[in-house]
Simulated assay, not measured.
Amino acid sequence: MKNTIKSFAFLAVIACLTFSFTTLKTEKKDIKTEKSNVVWKGYKVTGAHDGTIAISSGNLLFNDDVLTGGTFVMDMKSIIVTDLEGDYKGKLETHLKSDDFFGVDAYPTATLTFTNVKASGKNAYNITGDLTIKGKTNPITFVMSIYGSKASASLKVDRSKYDVKYGSASFFDDLKDKTIYDEFDLIADLEF
């Protein structure tokens, strides 16, 4: 009996040592920026506008094919409006890039860095990250789905947390039908 207990104890020690020195294979997969896109949609009392923002760089981190992290840099100077044409398109793009909104001359990039990733299903992950816009960083949560070498995510961003004040009822009273809602959507379709 004593020999059996000693054998089990010995095996337990060997197993613990083996698992202690076994490391997971971490792999960094760069985002193919030319095949990936981010669509934005902003809402106001009288309607909505949408467009795109280019990803200038990004990567996802995996341990044995399980998502563990990621970082993205968006080129804020690349903001494009896709629901308008002509002068209206140009005016809105210029306004979005101005200090009234994203101040792209002073803040040419926005970043998202994952801080916590938890699997929530076969191909889905609940993610918490730090989103930095206009030099201000706030936590954000969202779900990301991954299928093969593609990923998709939808984020709701509260612009008032990033000092984007223009037309916001959080900063100005009595805007009525000139109100632009604080939350806007970002929908990312990524290839890596």
Rank of each mutant, 00 (worst) to 15 (best):
K29G: 06
D30F: 09
K32Y: 07
K32M: 09
T33Q: 06
T33M: 03
T33W: 07
E34T: 06
E34H: 01
E34I: 00
K35D: 14
K35Y: 07
V38C: 10
V38Y: 01
V38K: 00
V38H: 02
V39D: 05
V39R: 11
W40R: 00
W40E: 01
W40K: 05
K41Q: 13
K41E: 11
K41S: 08
Y43F: 14
K44E: 03
V45G: 03
T46F: 06
T46L: 10
T46P: 07
G47Y: 06
G47M: 04
A48P: 03
H49R: 06
H49F: 07
D50Y: 14
D50T: 12
G51I: 02
G51K: 10
G51T: 01
G51L: 09
T52P: 00
T52Q: 06
T52E: 02
I53Y: 03
A54V: 01
I55N: 07
S56D: 11
S57A: 14
S57P: 09
G58K: 01
G58N: 08
L61G: 07
L61F: 06
L61I: 09
F62D: 05
F62V: 09
F62L: 14
F62T: 03
N63D: 14
N63P: 01
D64N: 15
D64T: 09
D64K: 14
D65A: 14
D65C: 11
L67G: 09
T68C: 11
T68A: 15
G69S: 10
G70C: 13
G70K: 12
F72E: 02
F72L: 15
F72I: 13
F72M: 11
M74E: 04
M74S: 05
M74W: 06
M74F: 15
M74H: 08
D75H: 01
M76L: 02
M76S: 02
M76I: 08
K77D: 07
S78P: 13
S78Y: 11
I79N: 03
I80C: 07
I80H: 12
V81M: 04
T82C: 05
D83W: 11
E85W: 08
E85S: 13
E85L: 11
G86T: 00
G86W: 08
G86D: 03
D87Q: 13
D87W: 04
D87F: 08
D87T: 08
Y88T: 04
K89I: 00
K89V: 00
G90D: 12
K91P: 00
K91R: 12
E93P: 03
E93F: 11
E93C: 09
E93N: 08
E93M: 12
T94E: 12
T94N: 15
H95V: 03
K97E: 01
D100P: 15
F101C: 04
F101L: 02
F102V: 04
D105C: 09
D105N: 15
Y107N: 15
Y107I: 05
Y107M: 09
